[in-house]
Amino acid sequence: MDLRVFTEPQQGATYETLLRVARAAEDFGYGAFFRSDHYLKMGAADGLPGPTDAWTTLAGLARETERIRLGTLMTAGTFRLPGVLAIQVAQVDQMSGGRVELGLGSGWYEEEHTAYGIPFPKAKFGRLEEQLAIVTGLWETPVGQHFTFDGQYYQLKDSPALPKPAQARVPVLVGGHGAKRTPALAARFASEFNIPFASLADTERQFKRVGDAALEHGRSAADLVYSNALVICVGRNDAEVRRRADAIGRDVEELKANGLAGSPAEVLERIAAYQAVGSQRMYLQMLDLDDLDHLELIAAEVAPHLS
Score class of each variant (00 low, 15 high):
25 A>N: 09
28 F>Y: 14
76 A>W: 00
43 G>Y: 08
91 Q>E: 12
22 A>F: 01
82 P>R: 08
120 F>A: 03
91 Q>I: 07
91 Q>Y: 09
103 G>K: 07
54 A>N: 05
76 A>R: 08
35 R>P: 00
40 L>I: 02
110 E>P: 02
74 M>F: 15
65 T>E: 02
50 G>Y: 09
85 L>W: 03
58 L>M: 06
109 Y>W: 13
110 E>L: 03
59 A>N: 10
101 E>S: 13
92 V>E: 01
108 W>Q: 04
121 P>I: 06
94 Q>L: 14
75 T>C: 12
80 R>H: 12
75 T>F: 01
102 L>S: 06
25 A>V: 04
80 R>T: 00
100 V>K: 03
57 T>E: 09
23 R>K: 15
68 I>N: 10
55 W>P: 08
48 L>V: 04
106 S>W: 00
66 E>T: 14
62 A>V: 05
50 G>L: 08
115 A>Q: 13
32 A>D: 14
116 Y>S: 01
101 E>Q: 15
23 R>A: 07
88 Q>H: 01
106 S>Y: 02
30 Y>N: 10
98 G>A: 08
91 Q>L: 04
115 A>H: 08
31 G>E: 14
117 G>K: 12
74 M>Y: 13
46 D>Q: 04
105 G>N: 11
91 Q>M: 14
45 A>I: 01
87 I>E: 14
53 D>E: 15
22 A>M: 04
90 A>W: 12
75 T>K: 05
37 D>H: 05
78 T>C: 04
113 H>C: 14
53 D>A: 05
92 V>A: 15
60 G>P: 08
94 Q>Y: 00
101 E>C: 02
59 A>H: 09
64 E>C: 06
65 T>L: 07
111 E>F: 00
49 P>N: 08
94 Q>K: 09
92 V>P: 06
45 A>P: 02
31 G>F: 06
32 A>Q: 10
68 I>A: 11
63 R>T: 15
42 M>N: 01
51 P>Y: 05
35 R>T: 14
24 A>I: 00
115 A>E: 12
110 E>R: 15
50 G>E: 06
45 A>T: 13
98 G>E: 07
27 D>A: 15
35 R>M: 15
84 V>F: 12
113 H>Q: 03
35 R>V: 10
107 G>Q: 10
82 P>V: 02
61 L>T: 05
107 G>N: 11
